[in-house]
Nucleic acid binder design. Structure first.
Lengths: 205, 205
DNA sequence: TACAAAAGTGCAACGAGTCAACTTTTCAAT
DNA sequence: ATTGAAAAGTTGACTCGTTGCACTTTTGTA
């Protein structure tokens, strides 16, 4: 009667969850650096060695590896409404993601994460890991080679808006103005070397 | 006859230099993570506690806190040739800095630094520390409030081009295309809300 | 039923970094 | 010149995240 995973994998997932839950609870309760790895392991009733078989580092305890974030980013570009640019689509997606749908990020959680350098960095690095996938999506959409530098730049900068938002008095405004820059720049980039639009005059007839 | 600094400060600077030199030599010789803090301290003939009174971390041993980097960035914007935009000036400055004047970065040094995550991150963080100063310079130049989000965005992205360069097959090309994006976007930003240029028609005459 | 892989345990160790108490050197004011 | 405070350095023990190793238990499969 094992639905999809055997007992083994179920148990493994269970300990993993126990660890993550214990960690989050303790961190929120007593503060990130007042809680040691040992405390977390003990609270989940495993050894610290076991803990590190599930999570590569202390910071990793806080984040679950969101598999669909990347898919959502790519989809935002690929499935955007007609007549809008990839840059505009990314603005919408990131704004919604950050300011409309809070996701599973409660206020406590947010405070925890960006109250600690190590956690901020870890989160940012996870986020930036989608850079190449996003760049590829943009490139494919624009009909350019998958390693096109302009597309890589747009992808990088679009993701970096999140770093720009943090540390700004008005994060939303920061993201908006950053995307103004990117959208205008991107439009000009496309105008300079337009995608495979059927030319009015046949080439070198 | 102490020129400018007393014996005390001279000695302090000497130990500091001894530490930095020993560290660099050992790191290059045996690899960053085959050399411990103890080895460095021993080679400089001080205790590890003394080492940490001079450098906050192992990574810090590798970089000297270049005071004029920030000044150069600000100057690049402020003292640029007439008729060019701040974005264009930054492109020139960063390209020259990264590809023309190698600075004191030998090939070994470069290999050392970007062969290790920790060192790369440290370098990048030091570099990004100039973000706010640069943003202020841009804002002042454009006649905008010193915390203007568009200026902050340009500053952030311009500095981030260095991250974009690393991890690209053709770093120079990556920087150039990134700045194409930024320059075009910046021109549009200025066009939308131009700096204090005397209007052809007096406002609300 | 037997066997191999995977999960977990226990313990010892390492390396980076901190802390507190103490000695030595240097600077400056008398 | 002497003294006294501040700063530089030492020492050694300690914390904490993280790894390695040898071992037991559990589980899936042949």
């Amino acid at each position: 009667m094992t639905e999809t995973m055997g007992r083994r994998e179920r148990k493994k997932a269970a300990t993993r969850k126990a660890l993550a839950d214990a960690a989050l609870r303790l961190f929120l309760e007593h503060g990130y650096d007042n809680v040691g790895i040992k405390d977390v392991a003990e609270a989940a009733d495993v050894s610290t060695t076991t803990l590190f078989k599930h999570f590569p580092s202390k910071e990793a305890l806080v984040f679950d590896p969101d598999a669909d974030v990347e898919a959502a980013l790519v989809a935002a570009v690929r499935d955007r409404p007609a007549g809008t640019s990839a840059a505009a689509a990314l603005r919408e997606h990131i704004l919604r993601r950050k300011f409309v749908e809070p996701g599973r990020a409660t206020a406590d959680f947010t405070r925890l994460v960006d109250g600690h350098q190590a956690l901020r960095d870890y989160a940012h690095r996870m986020w930036m890991r989608h850079e190449t996938a996003l760049a590829r999506a943009i490139a494919e959409d624009a009909g350019r080679p998958e390693d096109d530098p302009a597309c890589a730049a747009l992808a990088h900068f679009a993701l970096e808006t999140s770093a720009l938002a943090r540390g700004s008095a008005d994060p939303r405004e920061a993201v908006e103005r950053a995307f103004d820059l990117l959208e205008n720049g991107w439009d000009a980039t496309l105008a300079a070397a337009p995608p495979a639009a059927p030319p009015a005059v046949p080439p070198s007839g």
